[in-house]
Design a protein around this nucleic acid. Structure first.
Lengths: 348, 348
DNA sequence: TTTAGCACTCCTTTTCTCCAAGTGCTAAAA
DNA sequence: TTTTAGCACTTGGAGAAAAGGAGTGCTAAA
């Protein structure tokens, strides 16, 4: 974790002004920023020499670093973090964009599966941010059960259909099950629907196993056989993740190095990496920003991530995010991610 | 299409020998091949000068081209195609690999959804070929109907579950449906199961609409309301495609050019491109090879594709493929693709 | 018809030079 | 004491020039 608080106090108004100017310029240009440039762009009431001195001080404090002696300054991760947390003036998302996002998602929500909505969300995120948009589908165990049905497919296999209250539908094939009559299966389905509807699938799994242990008497041989497959039934499969617009990032010059580009593409190809990465953001119901080394994923070390969970009521279901170069336009993208998460939450 | 037949006749045995040697060397090294190199590697019973002359002839015929006057020769697409079709000695897949593929897929087939099998197939293809493995999921309309069920989710929405004979499961949310009682829905499901089981979903769709027109009398008001949603029910959604190992290709030096790499990654990101591309291969039940310009997809113009459909009985369901650099090891990869398609067909 | 020899071509790599941007330091000004 | 102007110095990058090497095509001899 980057320790900000210590240094924050020591910064004078002018220091912050220069920090702000340098970081903002760097975000725009992607190149080391010199004192003269800052002086010209911001028409600050001091000479380049003064700015140079301040920059040297800020470098000492760890906010900047110099690629080489005679180059301008590049903000360090600490510098960027401080900028994002203390100096950033967010630009609210234009209401035109807000409208587009809302209408787009609302329509899909009414017409189709939740999956379409999530996919479209990631597309919209990538389009508006011109970077990569990511949506993590609701975690299986956090889905609230709405309905469950069983169908025999053949002598050995039962198909279970689990419907979540968000409209998400899962199916599970349960093979090698000894014969249970369809009426009994229906009874079991009714039992589950009656007792567990409204709970999360995680709870259902736990409770189901507990209940069966407790009320052994009540559950006859048939129910017993069913336990075996209850576990399988509620086994989470791979978490789904929708990623769109990865190629947008490739256009930024910081990835025009072949090796770095390869590493980036690799990171995106293995979706598990992304899922695990965003799992972290699902603890806290606010927008979160990770940059560079904090991400600790090879290939993404020159990237920034803006992520926000989306919820159903009070429980966090999944997460939306934008990944871009570390010098992305946080002022614009943070509100975008925030709003998208909000709309998604409203639709659930 | 590349016209091979004309030139094929004119080639002497020695010409073919040189063609073979140059192409094989190029496939290994990826670099222009000179006369001396060929002479050394293959210990041919003639001098480099003779080889040079033959190479010049072959260049005239369009099999080679020279990046510049003082470089070796690179096979043209025509040259490669000729090599693949007439000179290639396929290396059968080692039986160890065969066993691994078969067992791996068989196990998943028994345990899980078809989707897992398809995904694993593409993983295996990519692993063994060290290139990108692709599997196109069965086309919705070609799936043979096994069973269909309906469940009311709420006042307005019906969930339809369609099970194909391959074990593939689809679900469709059908919104904005006027109230039909569950028993009537069940009647409808029974009707569908009784009449259409064993047909492909494409046929089912056609027949269903025809039948309803013909036997208007039989179908009362309820059935009529159902027609509306039958269409929606049998609407194919986006075709699924599994792509694995795209980053493998990036390691080949021919893609170390930044722009080319970007184009390649872009082509892979948009899965629709790949699907459309492989649709072509689903006409003919044999392994097919496309190279370079034939592919006519931006970004894939330096690539080769080896594709083979997989079938259920006599009908082609989908397609498996490997995409790699145009100079890939066709002798090894063709048998790999062939075998994977075969195993997949056996499992269906 | 084949082969050895050789001049020639053109790409690639390395080296060198030059230039611009930017710094840190020093001394003068406010 | 703080700020500013001036200046020498550093460094990476662009571009030119040079060196090196792989391979060709042609010619003349075998």
């Amino acid at each position: 974790m980057l320790a900000l608080d210590g240094s924050k106090m020591e910064l004078s108004k002018r220091d912050r002004q220069i920090l702000q100017a340098v970081v903002a310029t760097y975000i725009q240009t992607g190149e080391p920023v010199g004192s003269r440039t800052v002086w010209r762009r911001y028409k600050l009431p001091m000479s380049p020499a003064t700015i140079r001195n301040i920059m040297a001080d800020l470098e000492e404090m760890g906010f900047f670093f110099q690629p080489h002696t005679s180059a301008g300054r590049v903000p360090t991760e600490l510098g960027l973090k401080f900028y994002i947390e203390s100096l950033l003036k967010k630009k609210p998302l234009p209401s035109k964009n807000k409208r587009e996002i809302k209408e787009n998602l609302k329509e899909l929500r009414c017409e189709y599966d939740l999956e379409k909505v999530l996919q479209e969300s990631s597309k919209l995120l990538s389009q508006y941010s011109k970077q990569a948009g990511i949506v993590i589908a609701p975690k299986f165990s956090r889905i609230v059960l709405k309905q469950i049905e069983f169908v025999w497919l053949n002598r050995h296999t039962v198909l279970a259909v689990i419907v979540g209250s968000t409209g998400i539908v899962y199916h599970r094939l349960i093979p090698n099950i000894s014969k249970i009559s369809q009426p009994n299966l229906n009874k079991f389905a009714n039992f589950l629907n009656a007792h567990f509807c409204g709970m999360t699938l995680g709870e259902v799994k736990k409770r189901l196993i507990e209940d069966m242990k407790k009320d052994k008497a009540e559950f006859d041989a048939i129910w017993h056989r069913i336990t075996k497959f209850s576990k399988r039934l509620l086994e989470p499969e791979k978490e789904d993740v929708y990623i769109e617009g990865t190629t947008n990032i490739l256009n930024y010059p910081e990835f025009s190095d072949i090796e770095r580009m390869k590493a980036l593409v690799k990171a995106f190809e293995e979706k598990g990496i992304i899922t695990r990465l965003l799992e972290r953001t699902m603890e806290d119901a606010r927008v979160q920003v990770f940059i560079g080394g904090e991400i600790s994923v090879e290939g993404l070390d020159k990237c920034g991530i803006i992520a926000s969970p989306y919820m159903q009521g009070d429980t966090i279901l999944g997460s939306v995010a934008v990944i871009g170069p570390i010098r992305m336009n946080y002022a614009k993208v943070i509100p975008l991610v925030e709003y998208t998460a909000q709309v998604l939450s409203e639709l659930l």
